[in-house]
């Protein structure tokens, strides 16, 4: 069996898991209570999406390994891979998440700018994925896009508020653009498994760019000229920062294997 569907599903799962983990670092540290709640809500939505993708990936992996194995309707009695083993027991080089989502949070401006870049992309991607021939990916996307709609609105408002805010907030947004822009090219650079899945990233790129320009204009922020873009995450080649997140995320399962709540 061709592994494109498994790899693509893992890419979607890893990306949402890592961004969820990053955003959750704000829990208890948000600038004000309402925004602390907002960022952790977004984190929870992403974790839920990630679980749906991992559960599906685990099913596909187990099915491809034992094509005669019994698959219970609840997915509960599967042997081998599980959502937990895929999240907790894979190494850096096996993670296929976007580089953008693994970067350190920086300040609040950098966190909301990353969410803005990502959510705009995810919304357009899910619009496409809802039409996928793969029914399960289409169902997960159709469910999740309702949540992403809120993330797009919330992060756009913050980019405008800070970009068109005080001198200090404007400077910080310029700094955030400097830090993050070079990781946005990867969103649209198709990995083999994306091409095989028929994802049209060129169409998404065009719409994404229009959205970013519109919000940046309102935020009085400059859209960078095309510059060098850092690639690698989709193929498992990451920045140094992913190792630190995985160390924290996987610590319990690696130290106390099979521990449960």
């Amino acid at each position: 069996m061709d592994n494109s569907l498994i790899n693509y599903t893992l890419h979607l799962a890893d990306t949402t898991l890592i961004l969820s983990q990053r955003n959750s670092e704000w829990c208890g540290h948000g600038p004000i209570l309402e925004q602390d709640i907002a960022i952790t809500n977004i984190s929870l939505d992403l974790l839920g999406q990630s679980r749906n993708f991992y559960q599906y990936a685990a099913q596909l992996i187990n099915f491809s390994k034992h094509s005669e194995a019994k698959v219970s309707p609840s997915g509960g009695d599967l042997e081998g891979a599980s959502e937990d083993s895929l999240a907790y027991l894979r190494t850096e080089r096996e993670f296929k998440n976007l580089l953008l989502v693994e970067l350190q949070n920086g300040d609040w401006g950098q966190t909301v700018l990353r969410q803005f870049f990502f959510s705009q992309f995810q919304y357009l991607l899910f619009e496409q994925l809802q039409q996928s021939k793969d029914e399960q990916l289409a169902a997960i996307a159709a469910k999740a896009i309702k949540e992403t709609t809120y993330h797009v609105r919330w992060s756009s408002e913050w980019v405008i508020r800070l970009g068109d805010g005080t001198d200090e907030s404007h400077q910080r947004m310029l700094h955030a653009i400097d830090e993050l822009w070079r990781y946005t090219g990867e969103l649209f650079e198709a990995a083999e498994y994306e091409t095989a899945m028929g994802i049209d990233l060129a169409a998404i790129k065009q719409k994404w760019t229009e959205k970013v320009i519109a919000v940046f204009d309102e935020a009085t922020l400059p859209v960078p000229e095309n510059s060098f873009m850092q690639l690698g995450g989709k193929k498992g080649v990451h920045t140094e920062q992913l190792g630190y997140i995985l160390t924290e995320l996987q610590y319990m399962q690696r130290t106390y294997p099979n521990s449960n709540w």
Binding site: E34, Q35, I37, A38, N41, L44, D45, E147, Y150, W154
Partner: peptide
């Protein structure tokens, strides 16, 4: 409207 997000995913504050 204070915040589109609230104490649970399904509510606004």
């Amino acid at each position: 409207l204070m915040s589109a997000f609230s104490s649970t995913a399904c509510k606004s504050l």
